[in-house]
């Protein structure tokens, strides 16, 4: 064989050997272990640390919040709707990459020096799911934000952990009182609350036509001392729960129709503050929910005092505390002036 051919063959063989050797040298051991890829990369990828930790992780410190959530509408696995902690509060495990805290197996690994994400703007947060939008399935609860809440934050009325409002109070589910028996007991009330519960220039608020459930709750609060007023605490003393139910039933049965009609409302409506109240108490003071009081026949002074009591903490109600939080004295005056026009006609 000619020499140049031999040389060519030798070079080719040499190149093949070199190439094969290089491939063996540069290919990592695990490359063909499971297939045409680096076998060790599977375990590498699987070794990443999860950031979303699940509700059990949050529960180790935030048990009260978890309990609130567990019983609420945001935890309904039976209908497939479960809004877990990290949907709104972001990843629990993300904090250990931002903070100085190091992961320890004995305790939860989110650092004490970093605060949990608590969304301030609930109008932005809640509407991600609950704004009425084309394409959302009908079974999803949706609102037209401006009509539903005006400019209010959702958290004023709703507890985000358990947002469904408790529309039926405990008292209203109790047995309805006996109005006739209540009328007899109510004789003592007329001095302050007016004949038949319509208070005109009397110190007490009008009770006529008020929701029985609300009156019952209020009386119970005076009897138990959780609501304090010198006159009422004394007056309610000695009343049994049945008496309270009866009196409530009596006053609820007296007819009282608001004198605020649509035309009068339009001339009086305070653009800035009254819409806040109207969502629950009605634009004419006539609330449709038995656990929210009607605001009919109440004097301006009584209304202002009540609002101030909510703001100062003397009267306790989660929803009202949220509403009055940002109200100035002038706002309170305006609102009270508006609702003071709603009298029994």
């Amino acid at each position: 064989m000619p020499r140049h051919i031999v040389r060519l063959v030798l070079i080719m063989v040499g190149f093949a050997v070199l190439a094969y050797g290089a491939k063996q040298f540069f290919t990592v051991d695990s490359f063909y272990q499971y297939g045409h890829y680096r076998g060790s990369s599977v375990a590498d990828i699987a070794s990443d640390k999860p950031k979303y930790k699940g509700t059990a992780y949050c529960a180790s410190c935030h048990a009260p919040q978890l309990a609130e959530w567990s019983n609420g509408i945001h935890n309904r696995p039976d209908i497939g709707k479960v809004v877990r902690c990290e949907v709104c509060h972001s990843a629990g495990g993300e904090r250990d990459v931002r903070g100085t805290f190091e992961h320890v197996s004995t305790g939860p690994d989110h650092p004490k020096n970093l605060k949990m994400v608590v969304p301030k703007d609930t109008r932005q947060l809640c509407t991600l799911c609950h704004e009425r939008m084309t394409g959302r399935p009908l079974q999803q609860r949706q609102i037209v934000v401006a009509e539903h809440a005006g400019t209010q934050q959702c958290s004023v009325c709703h507890n985000p952990h358990s947002p469904r409002l408790n529309l039926v109070s405990a008292a209203s589910t109790a047995q309805a009182g006996d109005a006739a028996a209540g009328k007899a007991k109510a004789a003592a009330c007329a001095g302050c609350h007016g004949a038949e519960g319509v208070s005109v220039n009397a110190p007490g608020p009008t009770l006529a036509g008020q929701h029985a459930a609300y009156l019952h709750d209020a009386l119970k609060a005076y009897i138990e001392g959780t609501r304090s007023d010198p006159m009422m605490n004394a007056g309610a003393q000695g009343l049994s729960d049945d008496d309270a139910a009866n009196i409530a039933a009596y006053y609820a049965g007296v007819t009282c129709v608001s004198s605020l009609d649509a035309a009068k409302q339009a001339t009086l409506q305070d653009k800035t503050t009254a819409p806040k109240c109207a969502a629950c108490h009605g634009a004419d003071g006539n609330s449709t929910n038995p656990s929210w009081p009607k605001l009919i026949g109440l004097s301006k002074a009584y209304l202002v005092n009540s609002l101030k009591a909510y703001k100062g903490g003397a009267r306790k109600n989660g929803m009202m505390a949220g509403v009055v939080k940002d109200m100035s004295d002038a706002d309170m005056d305006n609102v009270a002036a508006y609702y003071a026009n709603a009298t029994c006609k």
Binding site: I45, A46, D48, Y52, V82, E86
Partner: peptide, 23 residues
């Protein structure tokens, strides 16, 4: 997407499944 391979191999759900509020 890896179906959150680092989560599913630890018995967890992928992150998107974990946070989906409507299943």
């Amino acid at each position: 997407c890896t179906w959150c391979y680092h989560r599913i191999t630890k018995g967890l759900q992928p992150a998107c499944v974990e946070v989906c509020p409507v299943s």
